[in-house]
Structure formats: C-alpha cells, structure tokens
Amino acid sequence: MVSLKTTIGKLELKNPVILASGTCGFGKEIKSLIDVNKLGAIVTKTITLNKKEGNPPPRIAETASGLLNSIGLDNDGLKDFLFEKISYLGKLKIPVIVSIAGNTTEEFTKLTKEISKIPCIKGIEINLSCPNVIHKGTKFPLLAQDKKATEAIIAKLRKVTKKTLIAKLSPSVTDIKEIAKAAESGGADAISLVNTYPGMLVDIYTMKPKLGAVTGGLSGPCIKPLALKCVWDAYNTVNIPIIGMGGIMTSGDAIEFILCGASAIQVGTANFVNPKAPLEILEGIKQYLKEKKVNSIKSLIGKLKNNEK
C-alpha cells in the first residue's frame, strides 16, 4: 500500500489532490460530476465581505493551451456564504478551505475572524493575488507583489485565527523567493503557488480587447513551466509547505510539481475541460508511486535530482 497522506500546516490530507479556488464553486455545483470526498481537500470560490458583482463580460477568452479570465471575484459575500453555502460544505468528508479576499486589511481580518468560528472550515486561503481586483493596502497592482504588505497582512490574520492559513501568491513578481519569505515570516502555515498570470488578448477584427475588463489572468497548460519554476524557487527558500498549481492537467504534471517541492497540488482549469480530471490525476499518482516503488508521497516532495548525478 502506498501512502498518499500529506500535511499542510495543521491539516492532514488523505491525498495531495485539491480542487482549486474558482473552479469548483462551493462543492455543490459539481456533485453530480465528481465524488469530491475522494480528494484531498477543496478550496472554495473566493468570498469577499460584501457581495461583489464581478467584471463586465466577456469574462473568458481562450488562447493556445490556455484560458484567460477576468471574473472579478463575482460572489455573494460573507453573509450568503454563512447562510447558503456552509450547509453543503459541512456535509463533505474532506477538509474545506475557504478562499478570502478583501479590499482592505480590515476586511481580510473580519472575514478571517468570522470564518474561524465555523468548525467545518479547516483552512483559509488568503487570496493576495487575484489579477482582476485592486487592493487599497498597497501601491502595487497586486498585494502579493508587495512583500511588506504581504507580511503585514498575514501577521495580522495570524493573530486572529488558529486555522491553517495559506497565502496564495502571484507569479507576476520580480522575485518569488522574497514574497514567499515574507509570507512565511508573517506566520503563514503554507503558500499556494501560483495564481494566474496577468495577461490580455486582442480581437484584431473589432480591434478591441477580448475581455470586457481589458486584462485578465492566464491559466492552463501554457503556464505550467512558469509555475513549476516558482514552486521550485520557493521550495528552496522557505520551510513551510507549498501547494503547487498552474496548468496541472495530468498526474504527470502533478508529479512534476511534487518533485519541485509541492506538498500538495491544486487542479483548476482542468476541471473546466474534464470534471473528472482530479480523480484521474489521483489515480495516476498512485500508479506512479507503485511503478517507482515509492511507498509514500511525502518522500517524493522536492526530490528533483541533480543533473550531474
């Protein structure tokens, strides 16, 4: 028997496959397509303190092996989450991680405090890196591009919650190592890498941007090599676990991330292509461990071999 157990902060996951935020709603939406309880964990769509309308359409455009989106954190806010979404999430047998975002540090704090009161929520993923919203606490386009703001906000949230805190960072930075370090210093239990890459596409016939919001975030297979490097760089810098993601479509992709230092992985865009992808990835990881005669996924984390050897 191979062990797929992995640890993220205070969370013990039965396997390393996690559903990424914004690609599985609040669990209920996908229940007829995939048995979520077979996975390691689920991260909800990002919630904000107040209802957020989201960005003007079109919100989606496809590019070569990639998906560009500008949803703009469209969600019904904390109150709706507490009254409408929790009941289904509470029935799940796997850890539920709630993704949160705020316009200000106060909003992040209030969200964290409220969510920490809910027993069925096991972790909080702090979305510091959505390319489709602007935060008031920094002069940078993204919170996660500002190491001081990143550290400060996590330190503040660390004080108000005992739940596992995961900082979701942006790959669109000069040096991911510095930001990863800032998240660790602030007291994050883990970091999620990567959010989407800021990007844009143009319709040459109308001569207009393909997205209503002009720019958006790029995901899918085309970002995998870029995301892998971020995970590898962060792995060599921090001592907290890394949740790797970015274009994972197959178990092979997932194993690449684990070898580069990811303790767990998230499946995002692949859910839109094939709702069963997370289960297929899980099965593929099991097969790989058997073939390689590795009895625990933990012993694979960061085991990228040196070229000379």
Binding site: G25, E29, P57, I60, N69, D74
Partner: peptide, 17 residues
C-alpha cells in the same frame, strides 16, 4: 450565447447583465 468555460455555473465566466 456567451464565451464559457465550465458550462455548469462554477467558473462564472459566461456572465450576462
């Protein structure tokens, strides 16, 4: 009609006002 990714209401991509 609108550009869409998931088809089931999770991605919130095919918004119409």
């Amino acid at each position: 009609e609108e550009y869409m990714a998931c088809g089931i209401g999770t991605c919130l991509g095919c918004a119409v006002k």
